[in-house]
Every structure is written in structure tokens, then in C-alpha cells.
Design a protein around this nucleic acid. Structure first.
Lengths: 166, 166
DNA sequence: TTCCCTGCAAAAGTTTTGCACTACT
DNA sequence: AGTAGTGCAAAACTTTTGCAGGGAA
């Protein structure tokens, strides 16, 4: 099954492509800064653009390395401060998979969950409406109000399974 | 709904009580140590007993404070080393909720998931067979093999909602 | 008697913060 | 000009490790 396809069950959607371009996200970022009377700076633009262009599930360390390539003067503190700012602007999510460090992901239109390959580290995003519905039923059974939820599957991806067989 | 009860959907089981006593767990611990030719020590016993008696979702910091009460001489390093040992003996799980620190939980008979109250920090365990089944279907759709999975719901528990209303 | 275990302190890894300086608006 | 932003280094926080001494088998 390829990205975007639907499975035989009609429920699981895999690695849906983002509908928003990096350029659009940058414009939103600038608008949010203006709303808050915060400043647009070269560093913030460099960091945000690299983040939006590189895509999902990047760590602060990886982002730092990438930003250094186009602006070697940027410090780690600014990376973290800009990540926090983007989070406060509702432009990124901070994820904590089972590693020491956080990973960051641009906010998209839809909720999705993650599969993480324990062999190669590959992360697959998927949506499954049935699971979303079940989570709401559980919340009702628990008598609680949900603000967010997370589901993570860990295991071996098809590539790594093929490799192991080879 | 009270702990152990089943919901109207017949699926969600909440805060099932552990069927294994702390004393039984200690015996298992000693057996596992013997198998591995590792030593039984006063510190290990103190830490393991406090852990098994205090129950689930304790942090290393909390465990350290509790163990200090009955054995003030114990160091942080021994806490962490014993937690690692208990994990290697398959006697505890290490969980990483959305906090800086890990939380530890005695291994039980059944898989369950967690709801975490963002107001008071309360953690509710629940089982839902339908969600378990859906996870396996998603894994099949993704073409991956699962080793483990995690589902966490975050929100406000009923107590905190009542309090807010009051 | 052997060598595993322990405590202490230091190190490691990630993220945050204090401070003087820089640069947006 | 005024204030928010930046880089650097140091601190904070959780967890791990080196080492010398102590204790279980």
C-alpha cells in the first residue's frame, strides 16, 4: 500500500501529505508574531523555514545542524526558544517518543497517530477513524474530558523485516 | 462507575486491581536474582518492597524519598540501578508520559492504557479490547510487526471538572 | 575469598536561563 | 530610542557511570 491509499478495511490512511506549503506556514508565523507584537528576525525566519521545509519529526539537534548550514552563527538557545515560540503560536507539536529527546512536527489539519520502527527509527503517520471513535467512548466511560490523546505503535517496519529475512 | 466495573458498551474496564501481592512479587524478585547469580541485598529489598507496596506510576524521585524514610543511607544511583534491574527481571515497566521524568509500574497480567489528568496528575488505568483489536488491524494495514504499543489520553478527570464547576 | 554491590561525586544528555550585546520596529 | 532578541556559557534536571570501599555467597 502506498501513501495516501486506503486499506481493505477502509479505515487506515497512511502518511497523508501536508496540504499547507512551507511558504504559507511562514506567512502564518509572521502574522502570529505581529498579533503578539513580537519581532520578525533573521534567525527566527531561518529556523522556521528550515523546520517547515524539512518536515516532520525532526529533533532540536537535527534542526540545529540544518540551520547551521545556512546560518552558522545561530545558537542552540535560539533553536529552543524559536521552537517554543512556534509551539505557542500553535504552529508545531512537540512529541516525546521513547527516546531521550523531543521531536517536533508542523501542525496539520488532521489528528494522526504514529508507528515508530525500533530498528531503523522510521516514523509512519496514520489516521484511523475507528480508533478515534473508540477513544471518545473510553473517555465517556471514564467520565473525563479529553484535551488530546496519543497512540504510538512500536515494532519493525516492512523494510526492516525484509532485510532481516535477506 | 466504580473500579472493576464494566461500562454500558461492555468494553472499558477501569483501574483493575492487581492480583499479585507485594510479597509474591518479592519472592519472584528473589528467584530471578538467584537465576542470574545476582545478590540479594538490603538495599535492593528495601527499594523493591517499597516499590511493590506503593503501587503504580511512581517516579524515581518519589521512590527515592520513600525509601529514604526506611533506609536513609540509600543513594540515588542504587534507586536507578535497582529500577533497571527490576525492568531486566520483567518485574516493572518504565513509562514516559508527557513529563520530564519516567514513571514506573509493576508488571501485571494484562495490558492496559492510561488516562492522565492534566489538572491534578491523577492517572487512571483502563482496558479496552476494541482498541487493542484496532491496533492490530492498523499494524496489518501498515505492513509492520508490533512489539508494543501505547495509548495515552490527556484531559480533565471528573473530580477536577466538579471542582471547577463548584 | 571472590567479585558483586553501594555510595559518592562527577559526567552525560537534553533543555533552560542569566547576562551583556545586537538589531528589529 | 527603546525594547525584544541573540549568543555564549553556565545552570538545571534527570539519569548514568567511575571508583574506592563494603558486604553477600
Amino acid at each position: 500500500m502506498r501513501p495516501g491509499e486506503t486499506s481493505s478495511t477502509g479505515h487506515t490512511v497512511i502518511d497523508r501529505k501536508p496540504a499547507i506549503s512551507a511558504e504559507e506556514r511562514m506567512q502564518t508565523f509572521h502574522a502570529r508574531l505581529k498579533e503578539r507584537a513580537l519581532k520578525s528576525t533573521g534567525q527566527r525566519d531561518d529556523i522556521a523555514r528550515v523546520f517547515f521545509e524539512l518536515g516532520h519529526h525532526i529533533s532540536a539537534e537535527e534542526l540545529y545542524a540544518e540551520v547551521k548550514k545556512i546560518n552558522p552563527h545561530v545558537g542552540y538557545a535560539t533553536i529552543y526558544r524559536t521552537l517554543r515560540l512556534l509551539k505557542e503560536c500553535s504552529l508545531l507539536y512537540e512529541r516525546h517518543f521513547d527516546e531521550g529527546q523531543a521531536r517536533y512536527e508542523a501542525v496539520g489539519e488532521r489528528h494522526h497517530d504514529h508507528f515508530i520502527c525500533e530498528k531503523c527509527g522510521r516514523i509512519i503517520e496514520f489516521e484511523n477513524a475507528a480508533i478515534e471513535r473508540m477513544q471518545n467512548i473510553v473517555a465517556r466511560d471514564l467520565g473525563v474530558t479529553l484535551t488530546r490523546h496519543k497512540m504510538e505503535l512500536y515494532g519493525t517496519c516492512s523494510d526492516c523485516m525484509a532485510q532481516r529475512g535477506a
